[in-house]
Write a protein that binds this DNA or RNA. Structure first.
Length: 568
RNA sequence: CGGAGCGUGGCGCAGCUUGGUAGCGCACCUGCUUUGGGAGCAGGGGGUCGAAGGUUCAAAUCCUUUCGCUCCGACCA
């Protein structure tokens, strides 16, 4: 491609709309432009990278035996009501109606469509297993789109759906996808790790997320430094001792004017946070729920939501304390709190001698003992793990928490969709059985951003070779005829060798060309100017380390092949 | 949805407090010079100041409404 013809609007300055590195660089390097919050147009260079990632993904999906299809973006509300997710996905879906007022949504994911598609075709165990995948634009009306393509409202995703006769088959399909994912991310030049994950709105049993470690990541992951356990903090559990202060003193109401937070209580009473019972007022599907935790712990909402099997979980609002909880914000507690569902963290099972809110403004109770002053029927692990805590898995290591970007997620769905939507087959005994499903996603556009987060420097992007929009860029410097001719000849020669080559033949000064080539991150740069040409040389620069070296014109294509082979 | 900030030429910004008819840098166009690290000089084009309404002799500036973009939060009582 000649850059004089390329639509590549690069920016010298950081755009005001971008916050994180990948977002800034995707705009500056002319990969994309913003259309609306979380919605982008991809320009030639950006779309080329996307297609590279798609093709690598496609290759490994095909190799695993999956078959590519293309499913509808516009989906009827009916299939979502059938699967009982119309309300669960709720506001996350972009909804629309047609001229006859029939309801539709723009597909945020495609489990429903796939299940609906195959349910009339798959009749026998002989038709299974099957794995169907597609690469397509998904639409999700995110609460808060941000960081460019990292959390967009419209994004490209590869999604695959496995269909098996039983759980053993599902395990095999899942394993095949797991391995295909490892190969895909490795080939894209990404350092990705699989971690145990929550299944969220997908439902189902096992689930792994593939994470690219990066400080800008939105997810927190706990890693054991000893046994290799790795899990999203949404799910991670740590080794923690039970709490009990072994007090039998009588419960006592104390005056705590304007003392509402754990931190204020600590200071006011001169007691450690572990002494407090933190009571968090939540509303789960419009039912009031009080979560109890140690004052030193934080509530993990995902764990509570899973325990309650709730569709929606949110914090109670100020006004709801009185109506729903018959209490007051800042002073809520489990004592004398009739009729409210209470779930306590398992660490509190035997707690005695604690401080907790008295459900009365400006008052707390002290010397509170469980089973004497209040009853709890439900215990669960509700706490968020913290950096440095002990690993529950091996009982030896320490958990470290790092930020990561979720680029892939695989789920064992089981029979949830097939049962709700009536997708079944006849087994060898002629009995009707639900199809056992799995679901597997890769965020293609997010992966591009993650690749940039992991591969950049002060000058711009450093593309891994496999997903670079072009592999080689030739800079023709100056107005010298001989330079232009030689550059063109080398451009043709390298193209003939099968390389993807950019020729910077623009009427720009050397500095502009150097800077743009670094910004757009092409792995290998060849600089051709009148000086070096006199010596029968061109200058090469390797983008991944910015090392420069001289190459002889005589054996240029051999040397280029050698250099490219060494570039990662 | 709550909080905060921002919308002024393609991009980045100043001007707004104290109303007087829009400016800087980059980019763009023309000419000359320059030509291996984002050139210099000279000349030039381009803006309903996000939108609507109001106050005023006069509004980018003050008031109201509205739309959009960004950030923080939406959980610790």
């Amino acid at each position: 491609m000649r850059m004089s013809n390329l639509y590549l609007p690069t920016l010298k300055e950081d755009p005001a709309e971008a916050e994180i590195t990948s977002h800034k660089l995707m705009l500056r390097a002319g990969l994309m432009r913003n259309h609306s919050a979380g919605i982008y147009s991809y320009l030639p260079l950006g779309y080329k990278v996307i297609k590279k990632v798609e093709n690598i993904t496609r290759k490994h999906m095909d190799a695993s035996g999956a078959q590519e299809v293309l499913l509808p973006i516009v989906q009827t509300a009916q299939i979502w009501k059938d699967s009982k997710r119309w309300d669960k996905f709720g506001p996350l879906m972009m909804k629309l109606t047609d001229r006859k007022d029939r309801e539709y949504c723009l597909g945020p994911t495609h489990e429903e469509v796939v299940t609906d598609l195959i349910k009339d075709e798959i009749r026998s165990y002989k038709d299974l297993p099957l794995n169907l995948y597609q690469i397509q634009t998904k639409v999700r009306d995110e609460i808060r789109p941000r960081f460019g393509v990292m959390r967009g409202r419209e994004f490209i995703m590869k999604d695959a759906y496995s269909l098996d006769i039983d759980y053993e088959g599902l395990d095999k399909s899942y394993q095949a996808m797991y391995e295909a994912y490892e190969k895909t991310f490795a080939e894209c030049g990404l350092d990705a790790v699989a971690v145990e994950a929550d299944t969220g709105a997908m439902g189902g049993k096992d689930s792994h997320e593939f994470m690219v470690l990066a400080d800008s990541g939105e997810d927190q992951i706990a890693f054991c430094d000893s046994c290799g356990y790795a899990a999203n903090v949404e799910r991670a559990a740590a080794e923690k001792e039970m709490i009990d202060f072994e007090s039998e003193a009588e419960i006592e109401k104390i005056h705590t004017p304007e003392i509402k937070t754990i931190a204020e209580l600590e200071a006011y009473l001169d007691l450690p946070a572990a002494r407090m019972i933190k009571a968090v007022a939540m509303v789960a599907d419009e039912e009031a729920v009080l979560a109890l935790l140690s004052g030193e712990d934080e509530l993990n909402e995902i764990k509570l939501k899973n325990h309650l099997a709730a569709d929606q979980l949110r914090a109670a609002e100020e006004e709801e304390f009185a109506e729903l909880f018959k209490s007051t914000a800042g002073f809520i507690g489990p004592v004398d709190l009739a009729g409210i569902r209470v779930v306590a963290d398992q660490r509190l099972k035997n707690i005695r001698g604690a401080v907790t809110g008295a459900n009365q403004k400006d008052y707390h109770f002290k010397n509170v003992n469980i089973n004497r002053d209040f009853e709890v029927e439900e215990f669960a692990d509700l706490r968020l793990v913290k950096d440095g805590e002990g690993c529950l898995e091996c009982q030896a290591g320490t958990l470290n928490i790092k930020a990561g970007i979720e680029v892939g997620h695989i789920f064992k769905l089981g029979t949830k969709y097939s049962e709700n939507m009536g997708a079944s087959y006849l087994d060898e005994n002629g009995r009707t059985q639900p199809i056992v499903m799995g679901s597997y996603g890769i965020g293609i556009t997010r992966l591009v951003a993650a690749a940039i987060e992991q591969n950049n420097d002060q000058y711009g992007i450093i593309w891994p070779k496999a997903i670079a929009p072009y592999q080689i860029i030739i800079l023709a410097l100056g107005n010298d005829e001989a330079v232009a001719e030689k550059s063109e000849a080398i451009y043709q020669e390298l193209k003939a060798e099968g390389w993807e080559v950019l020729l910077d033949d623009r009427k720009e000064r050397a500095g502009v060309k150097f800077n743009d080539s670094e910004l757009i991150g092409i792995p290998l740069r060849l600089t051709i100017g009148s000086r070096s040409l006199e010596n029968g040389e061109v200058e090469a620069m390797i983008r991944e380390n910015n090392q420069k070296l001289k190459l002889n014109l005589a054996d240029l294509k051999e040397k280029v092949a050698e250099l490219m082979a060494d570039i990662s």
